[in-house]
Computed example of a mutant assay.
Amino acid sequence: MVLPRTLTRRELNRAALSRQLLLERAAASPAEAVEHLVGLHAQLPQNPYTALWSRVEDFDADAFSRQMEERSIVRISLQRSTIHTVTARDCLALRPVLQVPQDRTLKSAFGRNLQGVDVDKAAERAREMVRERPMTFAEIGEELLAEWPGSDARSLGMVARHRLPMVQVPPRGLWRQGGAARHTTAEHWLSAPIERDDAPDGLVMRYLAAFGPASVKDVQAWCGLTRLREVVDRHRDELVVFRDEDGSELFDLPDAPRPNPDTPAPPRFLPEFDNVVLGYKDRRRILPDEAGGHLWPGRNIVRSALLIDGFVGGTWALTTDTKQACATLEVSPFVELSGPQHDALATEAARFLAFHAPESEGTVIGL
């Protein structure tokens, strides 16, 4: 019997960078990149713009923002019951597949406050309400209190969030704009029905294309679904199998790129909660052990990451004054930089600052 080949951490790193469009920027449209990546984490509305700038050649943030206004790009709760930016097509296809994490979150976080509430009825009442006008979850909860006066308004609002395919409507998520998180259903916003197929098989295969090679635990950590071993086993004949240095079984698509571990990796600026950081149970292929405290200082806090030689080797922060006249990019490497790495990082930092603050007097500090 031939044993699976062992992939080093550096081999896994270069594979992840390649799949995540971080080894070299992709000559693809932003929508194509978003679909390849199976969405972008977007809890912070401006993060997808940074993520795409680091991944797509000549990324035009204004054009991508217009796609959101035109409804071909949307913001909706998907993987791990968190907000993601996806194409309209993926919104309709992925939402039913990822309903289980939504149900689990509603029960675990809000179930105690929903005793005596007919959750299905509350969800349908919320569906009717947001057809009339987009609403915040707080507004939905307050209106539902009229029918369930002994309940908790916030929890009632969360019924709408977790039981319905609720998209956040603009101006929320537009480039350099703000706005309250108001919602309506995906069906109403896109004038199309949500797909009925909730089988996770296609999602798992797409994950491997964008994140592999990976373990079953990695896939589950990324999407929030469980019991995916049986899905992988159903498709085992279509996959190749490897091991990591700890002996864990990894799966991948046969023709997916797995670059040479010595392939040069340029510096990259990643937003908080970036896909490549959150996409695995075992994050050591991108996050060295010594980097965890820098990037993950507390629960539900994931700082903006700086990739050095493909691994998280620093953090960054961008600040502007109230009139947007001055912008400062503070770069904080926590690894020693070689001369060429320093020069490449300085060049990338200047370009990054010009992207985020083109009309400001910009300064890079920390290098």
Rank of each mutant, 00 (worst) to 15 (best):
V331C: 11
P149F: 09
V277P: 07
V364P: 10
A146V: 05
P266W: 02
D343Q: 13
A123F: 13
L318Q: 03
A122F: 12
E143Q: 15
L3V: 03
N260L: 08
T319I: 04
V216S: 02
T184M: 15
L21Q: 10
G173P: 11
V240R: 13
G279P: 05
G173Q: 08
I308S: 06
H84M: 10
V312G: 08
V169P: 07
K217S: 14
S81R: 13
A346W: 07
K323H: 12
A123Q: 07
Q20A: 12
Q102S: 09
R172M: 04
E230F: 05
C91W: 06
D233R: 14
P213E: 04
P213V: 05
L3H: 06
K121I: 01
Y49E: 02
E361P: 00
E195F: 10
F269W: 05
R55F: 10
A88S: 14
A16Y: 07
L22W: 10
A63F: 04
L208E: 02
V302C: 14
G39K: 08
C91V: 01
E361I: 04
V119R: 14
H41A: 12
A354F: 00
L174G: 00
G292H: 07
W189P: 00
D218E: 03
D255L: 12
L306Y: 06
T320K: 15
H235T: 00
H183K: 00
D152H: 14
P267F: 08
R229I: 00
P257I: 03
A209F: 07
L40V: 10
D62S: 12
R95H: 14
V312N: 08
R80K: 13
R285P: 03
K121R: 15
G279I: 03
A265C: 13
L228D: 02
V167M: 10
P171C: 06
W148F: 11
C326S: 13
A350T: 11
Q341S: 11
G157M: 09
R127P: 01
A27H: 09
T347A: 15
P45H: 11
K323L: 14
Q341N: 03
A354R: 14
P271L: 04
R19A: 15
S29V: 01
G111H: 11
L228A: 04
L17I: 05
D201V: 02
M158T: 00
R95F: 14
P288A: 01
L94S: 03
R66N: 04
S304N: 14
I83L: 15
R25T: 09
G293I: 01
S304D: 04
D289M: 10
L208P: 08
Q102F: 04
G111V: 08
V312F: 11
T85G: 00
W316R: 02
L329M: 06
D309F: 07
G173W: 12
D321Y: 11
W175M: 04
A153L: 06
P266C: 01
L145P: 07
L208Q: 05
R163T: 02
E187A: 13
Q43S: 11
V204L: 15
A354K: 13
S77M: 06
A265S: 13
N47W: 10
H41N: 12
R196S: 14
G339Q: 12
S108D: 11
M158F: 15
A15R: 03
E238S: 15
T263G: 04
L144M: 07
V216C: 07
P340S: 06
M68A: 12
